[in-house]
């Protein structure tokens, strides 16, 4: 069983949602980024999304844009992101790590070689924001061969007619984008998310992680009542210059996510 499947099975057994934390590789510099990444599991992250820096992150808001530019300015790259992951795997062999980025650096790295090297570094899945199902045939076979889940995104604009296209070939989990917009701007509305998650569940057995627009413990708790996992990114990368504060926020988020359903029953 893959790390992702094992983790969602364990979460289901515990009867709670998971916390997915997004941080940018190499942000604000290689040493601090390693410290941030290595400390995430102990702080309560159930799954980690490791951002690959890109100069033109058009689906991201100001916080993640700034994180990518900080990383690049400090010498960050796709290759170094994989090295950072490999170093993390020396300290942690169970927490799933999903690499999240844009297609151009992967295309330039070479999709086949990238998938092989990513798997060797300890990655479990890939999210490529600007590679919709219509275009991902040039990555999917290599991801599959390397044992990497290619995580697909569904959004408020993915209607019932389009959903099967998104689900065909999806694996690992489904990432539901809770708001119309870029990362870290609008707030997700829990009731709308609940409806969307229920609608998607009718079409797939994949776990559903919800992200974009979850900023704090209260927001995470509200989403954790409905989703299998909630993703927090922008609020974390905004603290990358203060690793202790970043890990502190992860602890708060983890506590909120863990308590979300218990509170609902009470």
């Amino acid at each position: 069983m893959s790390r992702i499947a094992a983790r969602f099975a364990a979460l289901a057994a515990e009867g709670r949602a998971g916390l997915v934390t997004y941080v940018m590789a190499g942000d604000p510099d290689a040493t601090s980024a390693q410290k941030i990444l290595d400390g995430l599991p102990a702080a309560g992250a159930d799954i980690i999304e490791l951002g690959l820096p890109f100069s033109d992150p058009m689906a991201d808001g100001p916080a993640v844009q700034a994180a990518a530019l900080r990383s690049l300015k400090a010498g960050g790259s796709t290759r170094k992101a994989l090295a950072q992951l490999a170093a993390f795997r020396k300290t942690d062999s169970t927490t799933p790590v999903v690499l999240m980025g844009y297609f151009n650096p992967i295309y330039i790295y070479g999709p086949e070689r990238f998938c092989r090297d990513a798997a060797a570094a300890g990655a479990d899945g890939l999210i490529v924001v600007d590679l919709p199902p219509e275009e991902d045939a040039e990555l999917r076979p290599f991801a599959k061969a390397a044992g990497l889940d290619l995580v697909r995104l569904a959004t408020p604009t993915t209607d019932d007619k389009r959903l099967p296209t998104v689900l065909a070939g999806a694996s690992g989990f489904l990432y539901y984008v809770a708001v119309l917009g870029v990362t870290g701007t609008r707030s997700a509305a829990a009731d709308q998310v609940a409806g969307a998650v229920a609608r998607i569940r009718r079409s797939t057995a994949l776990p559903i992680a919800v992200g974009f627009g979850i900023k704090d413990a209260a927001g995470a708790a509200a989403i954790a009542r409905h989703a299998d996992a909630c993703v927090v990114g922008s609020a974390l990368v905004a603290l990358s210059d203060k690793p202790a504060s970043l890990h502190g926020l992860v602890r708060d988020l983890a506590a909120a996510v863990r308590g979300a359903r218990a509170k609902q029953i009470a």
């Binding site: 919709p132 219509e134 959004t155 993915t158």
Partner: peptide, 20 residues
């Protein structure tokens, strides 16, 4: 029909924009 001119072109956008 998918917007390709040989190797070039296509529709590399996020899922939110795809239906639009």
């Amino acid at each position: 029909e998918n917007g390709h001119f040989g190797l070039f072109g296509g529709r590399y956008v996020s899922e939110t924009l795809m239906p639009l």
